[in-house]
Amino acid sequence: MNEPKKLIDTPSQTAGPFLHIGCTPRITGINIFKNELGLTPFQDISDNEAINIKGKIYDGNDEPIIDAMIETWQCDANGNYSNNQGFARIVTDFKTGEYQLKTIRPGNEINTDGSLTASYITFWIVARGMNRPLITRMYFLENDLKNDLMLKSIKIEDRLNTLIPYTKDNKNFIFNIYLQGKKETIFFEF
């Protein structure tokens, strides 16, 4: 049987250094839209459930990237994805390169066989110099990543720790992303 001919999906191009004009216009002093997208992933996050994630994205010269945009996407505490929550749009600071995200701890998705996946937050990253987005995930330390359905077939055990943030209190996390070098983060493609 002949498969119907597929159209080619439009190629990606870099978002460039001025992506803020279109994506987070208020930073550039443009206040014409009703609202900014993804200001918070969930409405009314209580102090109790809030977690704070911050970090920097380091380029191959170990310089933090000051003009990146990160979109994060995650499920709610019960492991469910919804169309109207779970999305955040953050940019790295023009001077320090640091990003900050206040969110809640995602739950575990349930696999078709009833097992639970490790909980994670998807990071979708664009910036000048990136012809295509980079996609990674922040997992949590107590997840058993080596047995995760998604990851266990992959021979990356020695790099799995690049997906796990540093934390002292399970409330505040530091998740740095390294594009190159010894600590190069695992990026995903689908």
Binding site: E63, A127, M130, N131, I135, L151, T185, F187, E189
Partner: peptide, 12 residues
């Protein structure tokens, strides 16, 4: 300097 050196991981 703004692209990874290692191949990305293809997952479902």
């Amino acid at each position: 300097s703004r692209s990874p050196n290692k191949e990305p991981l293809w997952i479902n």
